[in-house]
Structures are given as C-alpha cells and as structure tokens.
Amino acid sequence: MATQQTTTSCSSSSSSYSSTSISSSSAYLLVDSGAALANRKFAKDVDSVIARARDSGVQRIVVRTTNIQSTKDGLRLSRLFPETLVCAAGLSAHESRLWNRETEQQIEDVLRAEECVAIGDCGLDFSRDFSPKDTQLDVLRCLATLADRLTTEGLPRALLVRQNGAHEELVGILREFCSRIPIVVSFRGSEVEAKEYLSFGAFLSISSVKEESIQRLIQTQELPIQRILLMSDSPFQCPNLRSPRIPETARTALTGRSMSFVNRYCTFARNEPCSVSALAELVAGLSGQLAEEVALQTTFNALKVLGLSVK
C-alpha cells in the first residue's frame, strides 16, 4: 500500500447474551461519551455489547473514531443501531500524518450526517513520534476550524480532544475556539491542567477514578459533577474494581448489579460500555452524592454539549 503524503490544509464476550442474564431493571439513565465500537474487538458481537449496555442503564453511546476507516464504520454502526448509537468523526494525533484535502472532505461528509454529533478523537500527543508535532498542531487547528464553520451553518459539532505531553499547546488552540464550539477533554492529567480546561468552559470526560488528581478534584468539588461526562473508553480502560488505587469511600458506593456487569463482561483484553454504571457509582462515592444524581447530571451534560436525545 502506498503511503499517503501529508498535506495540511484547512478547506471477549459471548455473542449469545440475553437481557435475562442480569435483572433488566436499571435505576440509571446514562450516556457513554466515548466507546470505540468500530474496533475489531467488537466485530463479532457488537449487538450483544449494545444490549448489555442498555440493560445496565446506558441509553446512548458515542462511537469515537481515530481514522477515516473507523469513522466510516462508526457511521455505519450508528445507522444500524440508531436507538442507541451516535458517532464522532475522528483523526487522532497519531493519524494526523494522513491528513490531506481528501481526508478533510471525507470527515466533513460524515460530520454532516445526522447520526454524527462531534469531531473525535482528535488532539495532540507529543510523547511519541507517530506524526510530526507541527502536523498535529495544524490538523487540530483545521478540525477546530471545521467544527466552527459547521456550527455557523447550524450544524453544531463538539470537539472531543485528548492530549499527552502537549497541555500548553492544546490550551493555546482551544482558547481560540472555546467561545464558539463545545469542547470535551478526555482527561487524565494534573489538577492544574483540569482547572485550566474548566476555566474556559470545557467539559471533562473521565473513564476512571484511579488517578489521585481526579479523586481530589471530585472530592473537593473543584471538578463539579455539572462539568463531567462519563465514558467507558472501550475496549480500553477496564475498570479493575479491586484496584487498591480506588479509595474505599468510592468503592462503598458500588452495587452488586453494576459489579456484575463489570465482573462478567469486562476484561483487561476488552472493556465494554456496560461498565459506565460502575463508574457513575464510583464518582458518586467520591462526591458524596447519590449515584442516581450523578447519572442524571452527567447524562444532562452529555445531552447539552453533544446535542443528544435519549430514545
């Protein structure tokens, strides 16, 4: 296969799952704001994965993507499962080297589909050299510009971003656009970084409470529930509920039902969206709120920032 030339321009679970496996009543109404269901790990049983998610209380899932192929696959899945899935059109930091005018047009075409609600994943990763730093910066700015243009046309699309080793550079770009487009940062970083994102109106999506910085931010309410989105980050980020890094105050909020979903269906090889109910309970334990309140507030946040509806 010929290598595309980069031209920066701004123009394992069983498939026989049944809802009778676990009691079908759920106390929660949840949104998973980030799951890579187009990943090949879900190729054989994505329908069962979605059924488990809905049974656990996850009513909407945003299919995040990282390149043109997964973006197209995410749109296809969203059309196959419109009652649950919406998609994002993404080009990750690692894939930025593949950006060209054709790639830009293909991403824009997906963004104009009614099933698409955001640009993501996108962002900056300066810890590795899969794509040159300058290219990453140019592509992220192009994607933000695209989101801005679509918003002015009446098609608001949020920007779902990640960063690794590039906080200052990311903030520099986001500040240019934060007053015009919704921004969601997939957060794993320091308290100082979190506060800077929050200072210009960004929402933070979290997939774990193992990091001490996240624990302190939630416990002190410096990261209020009103600014949090929950995400499984499936098939990654398996929530090891036995981890000693999870405080006992958080763990005491876990219910047998949510733990059953995690213990039966989520492994280190493949996490699933059904783990979000346990994540909501862990956040509730840290914040001192009821899990139902955390679920409703984070769902409201997702509906607001991503323009979702719950079917």
Rank of each mutant, 00 (worst) to 15 (best):
F261G: 01
Q163F: 15
S243E: 00
E281C: 05
I206P: 02
D109N: 06
F130A: 00
F130S: 01
T298S: 02
L230V: 13
P239K: 07
A89D: 08
A27V: 03
P182F: 02
V139E: 06
S179C: 06
S287R: 10
V31S: 05
S208G: 02
V58H: 05
V209Q: 01
A2Q: 09
L140I: 13
R40S: 12
L229T: 13
Q219M: 14
R54K: 14
T249H: 00
L204W: 10
V305K: 10
L160I: 15
G90A: 10
Q289W: 04
V31H: 09
L308Q: 04
F81E: 08
S92W: 04
G288I: 00
G90H: 09
T135L: 02
G90K: 09
L143D: 06
D73V: 05
D129Y: 00
S232W: 05
F203E: 01
A89V: 08
P273A: 01
N67A: 05
V49L: 08
R251T: 14
E95K: 11
I119S: 03
A93H: 14
D125P: 14
D47Y: 12
T151I: 09
L286W: 12
R60T: 08
A2H: 11
K41V: 04
S208P: 07
S258W: 14
C116K: 05
V62S: 01
K72I: 15
P132W: 10
A43Y: 11
I181F: 11
C178W: 10
A269F: 11
S205A: 14
R227N: 05
Q106T: 11
V305A: 10
L254N: 07
Y197M: 04
M1Q: 11
